[in-house]
Design a protein around this nucleic acid. Structure first.
Lengths: 248, 248
DNA sequence: CGACCCCTTGAGGCTTCTCAAAATCCGTGG
DNA sequence: CCACGGATTTTGAGAAGCCTCAAGGGGTCG
């Protein structure tokens, strides 16, 4: 038994995990971070529960108010989370990337809408089984608590931005944050790449697309940034941008 | 041994817990909710780590950026969490009450400032020991995860409010939320009692005190609410208030 | 090559902020 | 019990920032 099991298990592990956790090569390292603290057996158990789902740009994974049947983990691509008012006004509450979880809330309904920004792959876990798994794997739960606390701190940062910063301060903060985020993920921090449209950036920053565009133009005219293309921002004067991020 | 231990333990438990978890009679039921899922032994362990600290109104418990030496649990009273910009602009990210935890973030520094709104008692836990305790008590960790996820959902709701709602919508949402919160805590939902000043409400809603006051006046003149005193709001027409909460 | 989508630019209006002052509340002390 | 002082709240007038509406560019894909 001791001799026979390891190999098949290892093989099954590779097969299933590679299908589940490692679907696209460019983001392997990223998606594994969430599973790094888990043992091989634990990773296998997680993998056996999961279904890989590919999403096209703008495809909606779930909507605010839908019954929360599944928990998702992003393995590749970017997703926006948003909430809307009855008349259509939309607020994007955050952007998630590889390694992030969605649908963890304890309620029975999703509290936000999740939509793919670009080509995305997610791992889907049936909710009940995921929770059961959690209670049996303290290391995963510990990790989720840490991740959720970080998300909460990020949300508080966004609350400060939306409640007290001017349009220009929001844009400057946003660019610096995106740059820092890229750096943390091991990507080039400059020029900043923006996977979202102006509309999405505006809905994230509590502004209109016109205001976002005007701020970009103003920064460009002051030579603080340059715009090689609409979705890439070159930060030419980081110090001035940092000063603008909280200068009334 | 089996005969001797139970009694002293029970006695020590009562002594320490009553000092730690149950300092003021009016909020006993509340503060126990967080410990309800724990066994007596676990409660005892938690209690043995804790120091009870009383706070006067407006007293600061910790500041954003301070080294996060302790984790706190509120047993009595209300606390505001806030972040500030260099020039003094302040944004309150949320209000906490009995049963809520503070300072759980994984970072080494607090990400917000905590300040007492009224007379408050908190239980203080040395950070390192609290984390060690957590890893040994999955039920507590599970509960913390659930609580943190709820806080995250609340933060997202606030992000929607700050990013997309008008001043009047913010005020209406705020009043309804405070009323609902009171109901959930077993208090009278109407009239709504506001433990915070206009300045604190404004800093929470991303407005100025003048705008908050003007909205209250307008609602009063339309007979949607009445103001028996500055810190009590009687909701006279709940339906109209609900309609105002997201009517452009 | 044209249509469509997204982004940019412009003009005017509205909501909210800023600055200023009056009114109200509340604890203190005569 | 009333007068007083300070803090908080309310009210007012004007200004500013951002939004709305509208039109003009630029890139991409069929």
């Amino acid at each position: 038994m001791g001799e026979i099991h390891p190999l098949p298990q290892r093989r099954a592990f590779r097969d299933i995990v590679s299908k589940a956790i490692d679907p696209c090569e460019t983001c392997t390292a990223r998606s594994l971070t969430i599973c790094a603290p888990l043992s091989a057996e634990e990773q296998l158990r997680m993998a056996s529960l999961t279904t890989v789902i590919p999403l096209k740009p703008r495809q909606v994974l779930f909507r605010e108010g839908d019954e929360a049947e599944f928990v998702y983990n992003i393995t590749c691509g970017s997703v926006s989370l948003s909430k809307s008012l009855a008349d259509g006004r939309r607020q994007i509450t955050g952007f998630l990337g590889a390694g992030d979880f969605m649908g963890l809330n304890t309620r029975t309904a999703y509290t936000v809408t999740a939509e793919a920004l670009n080509d995305v792959r997610v791992c889907r876990f049936p909710r009940a089984e995921f929770r059961k798994l959690l209670s049996e794997m303290p290391s995963l739960e510990q990790r989720l608590l840490a991740v959720t606390e970080t998300e909460l701190a990020t949300a508080h940062e966004q609350i400060l931005l939306l409640g007290r910063k001017t349009a220009m301060e929001r844009i400057a903060s946003f660019l610096l944050r995106q740059s820092e985020r890229a750096r943390a993920r091991g990507l080039a921090p400059n020029p900043v790449s923006l996977p979202m449209t102006r509309a999405e950036a505006a809905d994230y920053l509590g502004l209109t697309i016109e205001t976002v565009s005007r701020c970009f133009t103003k920064l460009r005219k002051q030579d603080v940034i340059s715009l090689p293309s609409a979705d890439r921002v070159m930060i030419r004067q980081p110090d001035r941008l940092r000063a603008l991020a909280e200068a009334a």
